[in-house]
């Protein structure tokens, strides 16, 4: 989550005071990510240091100081918007690691473990879905954030389902075969 670029985005609409930026940021992100005012000013100072925003000369530090975006700031905002986030390497996913550890340990009921996680994720999805129930009161930014969260959690459930299917097939094919023989797919992944 780039507060830095989100603030540049807000400033691209016109000069704004720091405290207004905080309020606008929270509204535009559906009030899902609270931001403290100190964070706003620290970020603005860095943006100013880097020449991406400028403030009124001689104005005192604090809420009465207005900031505006510079030409370099606009270029940086444009570059950031069109640069895909780095999704190339799999993240170090705690749930995936838990399951990988579980299958290597004797005596762990992996199916049961998958179900414990599945239930917890579906419960979270129920909570997010409740927020969508009253469609008339749903603002666009908030709806987009809720959708993103639901798709993310949904992909976790799908992975758990796929893992369960894969484990089931593996346990069937393992009967009567020697695991140490035969080709096995091994690939080293670069993990962030």
């Amino acid at each position: 989550m780039s507060v830095r670029h989100a603030l540049l985005g807000l400033l691209s609409e016109g000069p704004t005071y720091g405290h207004q930026l905080r309020q606008e940021f929270e509204e535009r992100t559906g009030d899902v990510w609270p931001l403290n005012v100190g964070q706003v000013y620290t970020t603005l100072q860095r943006l100013e240091r880097d020449g991406l925003v400028e403030s009124d000369d001689g104005a005192s530090e604090g809420p009465q100081r207005a900031f505006r975006i510079t030409a370099a700031g606009r270029d940086e905002l444009e570059r950031w918007l069109h640069t895909p986030p780095d999704l190339s390497a799999p993240p170090r996913d705690e749930l995936v690691i838990k399951v990988l550890v579980a299958i290597s340990l004797p005596g762990v009921d992996v199916r049961r473990l998958l179900q414990v996680h599945r239930r917890r994720v579906v419960e979270l999805m129920q909570q997010w879905t409740r927020l969508k129930e009253d469609e008339g009161e749903l603002d666009l930014a908030f709806a987009l954030v809720v959708d993103a969260e639901l798709f993310r959690l949904d992909s976790v459930v799908r992975w758990l389902d796929a893992a369960e299917g894969r484990l089931k097939r593996a346990s069937v094919s393992e009967v009567g075969t020697d695991r140490s023989s035969g080709p096995r797919l091994r690939r080293r992944l670069v993990v962030r």
Binding site: M1, L124, Q127, R130
Partner: peptide
């Protein structure tokens, strides 16, 4: 039964 959805928003991490 899940707790009220507002709990999600209080739990959201700071950006």
């Amino acid at each position: 039964p899940p707790p009220s959805p507002e709990a999600l928003l209080q739990a959201a991490p700071e950006p």
